[in-house]
Design a protein around this nucleic acid. Structure first.
Length: 481
RNA sequence: CGGGGCGUGGCGCAGUUUGGUAGCGCACCUGGUUUGGGACCAGGGGGCCGCAGGUUCGAAUCCUGUCGCCCCGACCA
């Protein structure tokens, strides 16, 4: 069988990316058993393999949060309507997509309860009661929970009506402290994405038009998917004292003056799993970064019916499991089936061990990144596996970065801009005057939106790409999920 | 909310135009042979054809309604 024919056969059940990216995405999710559709519109069943990825994301993020002094709490899932109404911009932003509870059993409720779409109002209410003195500050709370937004159209992980996330909510004595926290958390997200998920991100600020309902400033990390669409992968908001004024969160300062607190909030959701799929996956299936892969290496015994093979494979599993997340597949499927199966599910390393290997005191390590095979001695397989996992993690970050570079363009004229958005896609760097009208016109003309005003500014031109007036900012533009 | 597609064993589909014994592939079960890139042979189990009405001697197929799902746009993590 030729190599090409072999390639074709291995991927026959997954639609190639180049043919239909959306279908490829759906195929991967189903085939790798990350999640399943449920009887409730827009809500998904997260299956063990998908949930295990989320658990690893939680572990990584939670440790980083706690290292900055954050504590975990849990807030109610219901918000009384009157409470949601307190901050005007906030309620306007979320009202169209909240689910309402109107009855308890057969009794109609006196006041409707909204199922939280986000919990700013609950944290604010709590802080209003809990904060009296500057000595009570800062409050650095986070919660892991699910929220509900009545979305019109949904896609697994990228947009579901109920999704899992964490939302951090902090209250500070000063504006400076709040700003510092906002940026600190943005950096936590960026570091997490690059180090754990091997996804390079662009850090920047959202425009007025794109910022969070009720925020003074919204910061974002933006990543680039394989199809050239952008995905907002995490956000961090500075609320200033807007919510504090609406909810009356005040404290006595150390010179006995009554002051409003300054707040932040920041979140990352299961949507990031969609990013992992779309940044790293290929036509053979999912490709998981070793640091969050539920299975870091799968042991596939070859000719497992032969004397001693399963025993040796079992020993190897016990040995490696002390340090790595290992699965031994001793099912009676053929080895070839297992190879394809675990490639499709994105397991970073496959370890083959058969009679010939045992005779030579060796095993074969196969990388998911390039299918390269390395024969290693069983005496130092732990070190070899460690080395390979570290290498794969680095290769994946590198590849994702290259993809982003290839899909990032610079536009100096509006014609050029429109052509790039339409034909090539990806990020387009272009200058902007700061006027919301230009932003809206660009969206209307091209469906591309401003992704962010990056912290790393470049001087591409001195006039706005759209209206030609003097430019104030360089902006990343692009179509987004 | 607009535009398109689709509901038939667990999954993917054919059958619907032209009404007449519900089929195929994969998966599953049993036995045997296999096992270094999705093995093979033989046998076997499983379906109110999304749901509700109607037309008809007879409906997966025709009519009416309804529910749900997917994709593409507008709005959002």
């Amino acid at each position: 069988m030729s190599f090409l024919a072999q390639e074709k056969k291995m991927v026959e059940e997954i639609t190639p990316m180049g043919e239909d990216f959306a279908q490829w995405y759906t195929d991967i999710i189903k085939k790798a058993q990350l999640c399943d559709y449920s009887g409730v519109r827009g809500c998904m069943v997260i299956q063990p393999y998908g949930y295990a990825i989320w658990e690893n994301i939680q572990k990584g993020l939670d440790a980083r949060f706690k290292a900055t002094g954050v504590e975990n709490v849990y807030m109610p899932m219901f918000i009384p309507e009157s409470l949601l109404q307190k901050e005007k911009d906030h309620v306007e932003g979320f009202a169209p997509e909240v689910a309402w509870v109107t009855h308890g059993g057969a009794e109609k409720l006196q006041e409707r309860l909204c199922v939280r779409p986000t919990s700013e109002t609950l944290f604010c209410e709590h802080y209003a009661g809990a904060v009296r003195s500057y000595r009570d500050l800062p409050k650095l709370y986070n919660q892991w929970c699910s929220v509900v937004r009545w979305e019109k159209t949904t896609r697994p992980f990228l947009r579901s009506m109920e999704f899992l996330w964490q939302e951090g909510h902090t209250a500070h004595a000063t504006a400076e402290e709040a700003q510092e926290r906002t940026i600190k958390m943005l950096n936590v997200y960026a570091d997490f994405c690059e180090q754990e998920l091997a996804i390079p991100v662009i850090k920047g600020q959202k425009t007025e038009k794109e910022k969070f309902a009720g925020a003074h400033e919204t910061y974002t990390i933006e990543s680039m998917m394989h199809d050239g669409k952008a995905l907002q992968s995490g956000t961090s908001h500075n609320f200033g004292d807007g919510f504090a004024q609406a909810f009356g969160i005040q404290y006595l300062s150390d010179n006995n003056t009554l002051e409003y607190v300054h707040q932040t909030s920041w979140g990352m959701s299961t949507r990031i799993i969609g990013a992992i799929i779309m940044v790293h996956g290929d036509d053979a299936g999912l490709k998981l970064p070793p640091r969050i892969a539920p299975i870091q290496a799968v042991i596939v015994p070859v000719a497992q019916h032969k004397e001693g093979v399963l025993e040796r494979a079992g020993q190897l599993k016990d040995q490696l499991s002390k340090k790595f997340r290992i699965k031994l597949d001793d099912s009676d499927k053929s080895p070839g089936w297992k190879y394809s199966e675990y490639e499709m599910r994105g397991v970073p390393v496959r370890i083959e061990i058969g009679p010939k290997d045992i005779e030579n005191n060796q095993a074969v390590l196969v990388s998911r990144v390039d299918r390269s095979k390395t024969f290693v001695s069983l005496d130092n397989i732990e070190e070899e596996l460690e080395t390979m996992l570290v290498k794969i993690q680095a290769q994946m970050l590198e590849a994702a970065g290259q993809n982003r570079e290839e899909k990032t363009s610079v536009a100096k004229t509006y014609d050029e801009f429109k052509q790039i958005v339409e034909e090539k896609g990806g990020f387009v760097k272009a200058m902007w005057c700061g006027d919301e009208e230009c932003e809206m016109k660009i969206k209307e003309d091209t469906t591309a939106t401003s992704r962010c005003i990056p912290f790393d500014q470049e001087e591409i031109a001195d006039t706005c790409i759209c209206c030609g007036k003097p430019a104030t900012k360089m902006v990343y533009w692009g179509k987004a999920y």
